[in-house]
């Protein structure tokens, strides 16, 4: 298979993100529309229903380095959230299966979708949460 280079891969992801993903419970876009290198992205996760996260809107930042997608992006929550995957001092996502065993086929969407599943995970969905609208 042809190996899609970083920039063209990110352009594909951008176009998919602009069209909107599924039911809109996760979304992402470029942080700076002028950034030719497409390194910095904003992400949003809407908390899953029937959990403590219901109706909360979480903001994240995602950084795709020069070796993306051969290497995982770095992902941090801007909004405060209590999840085992998230460093409670910095908001950085430090323990997430898809980041820890990253594959080239994974995308920004993969990461956001897995984080949303983590919120709905039975062991996490009742964790007490910081006040809504607070930031790391």
């Amino acid at each position: 298979m042809a190996k899609v280079p970083r920039n063209f891969r990110l352009l594909e992801e951008l176009e998919k993100g602009e069209k909107g993903i599924g039911d809109g419970t996760i979304s992402y876009g470029l942080a700076d529309g002028d950034d030719l290198m497409m390194s910095n992205w904003n992400g949003t996760i809407i908390g899953p229903g029937h959990t403590v996260h219901e109706n909360r809107i979480y903001s994240l930042k995602i950084t795709c380095g020069n070796d993306y997608p051969d290497r995982a992006p770095t992902v941090s929550f801007l909004s405060k959230v209590n999840l085992p995957a998230v460093n409670q001092k910095t908001g950085k996502v430090e323990r997430l299966a898809c980041l820890d065993s990253w594959k080239r086929s994974y995308t920004i969407e993969t990461v956001l979708a897995e984080l949303r599943r983590e919120m709905a995970n039975p062991s996490n969905k009742k964790l007490s949460q910081p006040a809504e609208g607070t930031f790391f």
Binding site: M1, A2, N7, F8
Partner: peptide, 9 residues
């Protein structure tokens, strides 16, 4: 510029 030939090219 950068140019890429996709698998289908």
């Amino acid at each position: 510029l950068e140019l890429f030939l996709p698998e289908e090219y």
